[in-house]
């Protein structure tokens, strides 16, 4: 095992543990905070893998914005009280499905790519930039459209309910 392996195992363990906690914790806001740790850990994994641009974007967009929104929604829905998990039987079935996914995915991937040591040699930031605005420019532009559509849709969905409610009063 190289030092990179050790580093990855450490960060990966934190990530996995935080992920597990974020889906099992019964206090909703703690679940959200564990998600922060899990996604931050994921950014760390990217960093260890040498994909620093992805790691920083993950940190900036996911942790800095997306999860904040999630926490925000948790606060706004005032959902501290009440059950947050399904019945225990349901949870067992869900656990089985989750384990199945892990086993299936892990088995397939490891079987396909093996344990052999390989060189880490990802593209540089410049190369990524050039590719985004070269090969991938149309998907990229399409993404901007998607974001716009999401923005409009979010505003539309959020305000429609509001208006209906006001209309009733």
């Amino acid at each position: 095992m190289t030092s990179r392996d050790v580093l990855f195992v450490a960060v990966g363990l934190i990530t996995a543990a935080a992920a597990v906690l974020s889906v099992t914790n019964r206090r909703v806001l703690h679940a959200g905070l564990w998600l922060v740790v899990a996604l931050g850990g994921l950014a760390g994994c990217y960093l260890v893998l040498g994909a620093e641009l992805v790691a920083l974007v993950q940190l900036l967009v996911y942790v800095g914005a997306v999860v904040v929104l999630v926490l925000f929604a948790l606060m706004l829905t005032r959902s501290g009280a009440g059950e947050v998990d399904t019945s225990s039987a349901h949870r067992w079935v869900a656990g089985a499905v989750g384990a199945g996914v892990t086993v299936l995915l892990g088995g397939t991937l490891v079987a396909a790519y093996g344990w052999s040591e390989r060189e880490v040699a990802g593209p540089s930031n410049d190369a990524i930039g050039e590719q985004i605005f070269g090969t991938w420019v149309w998907p990229f532009e399409l993404l901007s459209l998607l974001l716009l559509a999401a923005l409009v849709a979010a505003v539309a969905v959020a305000t429609t309910g509001h208006r209906r409610q006001e209309g009733e009063r």
Binding site: A94, A96, V97, V101, L104
Partner: peptide, 20 residues
């Protein structure tokens, strides 16, 4: 929604296992 989702995803996993 919740039970329905379990069934759907469970089915997907089973199908994937079969496929693999």
């Amino acid at each position: 929604p919740a039970p329905g989702l379990v069934l759907v995803l469970g089915g997907v996993v089973v199908l994937a296992v079969i496929g693999v």
